[in-house]
């Protein structure tokens, strides 16, 4: 990689906050509370924490370890690193999924990010114009979201949406262009504490709401917390509860996303990955359970009751909560602005992590400069985003990308990664590699968990997921041309990445690099001397 300037993280805290920033997103605040309330309330936390211990943290450690090992071999992209770990071209081309996921997810995540900023600005400048009783405001809120997202018809969003989207992709491009330490790390070191402060501000406001409507004394903060946390143990006998818990942990921690493997590749042999990986996961859990678990449904229940405290990620976040803020009176606009700015920060720390792996790949595979790689990845992802901006009706295009790439492919990549790590690279070698520079020891049982339990768990959950969703999704592809064409956009992206990987493979061989991982890294002896 002689022509590529070697990038490194500035500090250990920097890489931890960058990985945590990648993991903390809208799902922590919007998806988690809804999923928990629907699947046993407090009892949901039993399968949730089991999934964290069995899949989330161990598979995360494996990914951190693979990334750092690949970096020691001079590689920073998922295909190259997987080729080294898996010892050949099959693993290398499966590693292309580690580029496809962040690239395609960015194509719609950048749009959602711009909605958050648009809502934050709207609340900061007087609200989104909700007035009247709850039912009227709910209808107005739905209309407003329709204008922002364009979900009412193809390309039917307001002009402001275009402006906010252009601003968001420019900001993302700027920080990725600034580089790892000077751009992403510096931004996350500022954004993560800012996000925590915003969350605390909203949390304090929500927990001090008391009983806002004396005519409905049953709608109070304690009842709102009860709506989220009162356990229903019968849910534990339902397989769907366990599936939902595994899915929530899995997507929340961003394992199998192609990001951690890239971020960890900028670490040295002596840098710790064990404590860093655990700390990043713990940070994600604080935002998810500590903030998401207390704010969202509690606020919705206090003003709207159990019937109002429902809805998926978009419904809860962009339709229900604006009604809740409107019920808070004048201070509601401030709380709304802080809340949506926090979601914007959560989104941008994630979206930056989606661009970096693809940029690093273009530099590595094609030998392009930093600037050229940034321009290429921005233009390519903007093309995909434009597709989503043109096909906004019922958000079918966005939803199609989210299901096939942002959900199903993540399962596949995580399973591939954990199997290559445990069974091809070797679990004993993997554990030894993980402990270089480690500040804490990984319990011995984790090796067994990574080798046997995690792959089984992932395959079972994926099979159940396919059984639950795949039939309807295939029907949608047949019936809806937009869904089918959107999948075509994804396949085109995959094809482009495979071609670039083939070019990179030839370049790496010509440079005499050990792309099949046959020899130990060059820093082995150097590392021992340090």
């Amino acid at each position: 990689m002689a022509e590529v300037k070697q990038e490194r993280w500035g500090t250990r805290l920097g890489v931890i906050l960058a990985v945590a920033g990648s993991a903390v997103g809208l799902g922590n605040f919007l998806r988690f509370p809804g999923t928990a309330a629907q699947n046993g309330g407090g009892a949901f936390m039993i399968p949730y924490f089991i999934a964290l211990l069995v899949v989330g943290i161990p598979v995360g450690w494996a990914e951190w370890t693979m990334g750092r090992y690949g970096g020691r071999k001079g590689f920073h992209s998922s295909p190259a690193i997987m080729g080294v770990i898996g010892g050949g071209s099959v693993a290398r081309y499966l590693g292309v999924l580690g580029l496809l996921i962040p690239m395609v997810v960015y194509m719609y995540y950048g749009l959602i990010e711009s909605w958050c900023l648009q809502y934050a600005v709207a609340f900061a400048t007087g609200g989104i114009g909700l007035d009247g009783n709850t039912a009227t405001m709910a209808a107005q809120s739905g209309t407003y979201f329709g204008q922002v997202s364009g979900s009412a018809g193809e390309g039917a969003m307001s002009a402001g949406t275009w402006g906010f989207w252009l601003f968001v992709i420019t900001v993302n491009a700027y920080f990725v262009w600034r580089g790892l330490s000077g751009g992403i790390e510096k931004f996350c070191q500022w954004a993560m504490p800012a996000m925590a402060i915003c969350a605390v501000v909203v949390l304090v406001r929500v927990l001090t709401l008391g009983t806002p409507d004396p005519a409905h004394p049953e709608l109070n903060v304690v009842s709102g917390l009860g709506y989220m946390w009162n356990p229903r143990f019968d849910a534990l006998g339902n397989a769907e509860t366990w599936l939902a818990a595994a899915g929530q942990i899995f997507f929340s921690l961003s394992v199998g996303f192609g990001v951690i493997i890239n971020y960890a590749s900028y670490m040295r042999k002596k840098d710790d990955v064990v404590l860093s990986g655990l700390t990043a996961s713990a940070t994600n859990e604080v935002f998810e359970v500590g903030f998401g678990g207390l704010i969202t449904l509690t606020a919705a229940f206090v003003f709207l009751g159990a019937a109002g405290a429902t809805g998926g990620t978009f419904g809860l976040g962009f339709n229900t909560l604006p009604v809740v803020f409107a019920h808070m009176g004048p201070v509601g606009n401030v709380v709304g602005a802080v809340w949506f700015f926090m979601l914007f920060l959560a989104a941008i720390t994630s979206s930056l992590s989606m661009l970096q792996p693809v940029k690093a790949f273009l530099q590595e595979a094609l030998g392009w400069s930093n600037g050229r790689s940034v321009i290429a990845v921005v233009l390519f992802t903007a093309g995909g985003s434009l597709w989503n901006l043109q096909h906004t009706k019922d958000l079918v295009a966005l939803d199609t990308m989210d299901f096939w790439v942002g959900t199903a492919t993540i399962f596949v990549l995580a399973t591939v990664q954990v199997i290559y790590f445990a069974w091809v690279f070797g679990i004993d070698r993997g554990m030894e590699e993980a402990h270089h520079g480690a500040r804490i020891r990984i319990p011995k049982i984790v090796a067994f968990v990574i080798k046997y339990v995690a792959p089984t768990y992932l395959i079972v959950v994926f099979a159940a997921f396919c059984r639950q969703s795949l039939g309807d999704r295939i029907d949608a592809l047949v019936e809806d041309p937009v869904a089918a064409q959107t999948l075509g956009v994804v396949v085109f992206g995959l094809f482009a990445l495979v071609v670039a990987t083939r070019i990179g493979e030839k370049r790496w061989r010509a440079q005499g690099l050990d792309l099949d991982g046959k020899f130990p890294p060059d820093d082995d002896e150097e590392g021992e001397r340090r």
Binding site: R12, L13, I16, G41, G42, A43, M45, F49, V222, S223, L225, G226, M228, W229, N230, P231, D272, L275, S276, L278, T279, A282, T283, E285, V286, E288, V289, G290, G293, L294, R439, I440
Partner: peptide, 30 residues
């Protein structure tokens, strides 16, 4: 909110905050 609800909430919050607190104490100490 039921007693069981309080228990689950307090235990879950204690678990995540304790883990994060312990992790950051170790990271910042090194």
């Amino acid at each position: 909110m039921t007693t069981a609800g309080w228990i689950f909430m307090v235990c879950s919050l204690t678990a995540v905050w304790s883990l994060a607190g312990w992790c950051y104490a170790r990271v910042l100490r090194d």
